[in-house]
């Protein structure tokens, strides 16, 4: 099965943020918002760090 770097990043952010969201907060709304926030941070920071390292090389 083929996994690109972007796909791996997406899957990692998705699975991790779901678990963080479910185990961290007290209401379903808080869990959903926190999970979405963590997913966005994981994905965007990894994406940004990738471009940053590309520019540095």
């Amino acid at each position: 099965m083929f996994f690109s770097h972007l796909m791996a990043t997406f899957l990692f952010a998705l699975f991790t943020s779901v678990v963080f969201g479910v185990t961290s907060k007290h209401t379903d709304r808080e869990r959903l918002l926190y999970g979405a926030w963590v997913f966005a941070l994981f994905f965007l920071i990894t994406f940004g760090a990738g471009w940053f390292m590309y520019i540095l090389r």
Binding site: M1, F3, A8, L11, F12, F15, T16, V19, V22, T23
Partner: peptide, 15 residues
Amino acid sequence: LLASVGAMFVSGLLM
């Protein structure tokens, strides 16, 4: 939780 952790584990095996 089972779906997320299980999918992460299986993804690791597939990789």
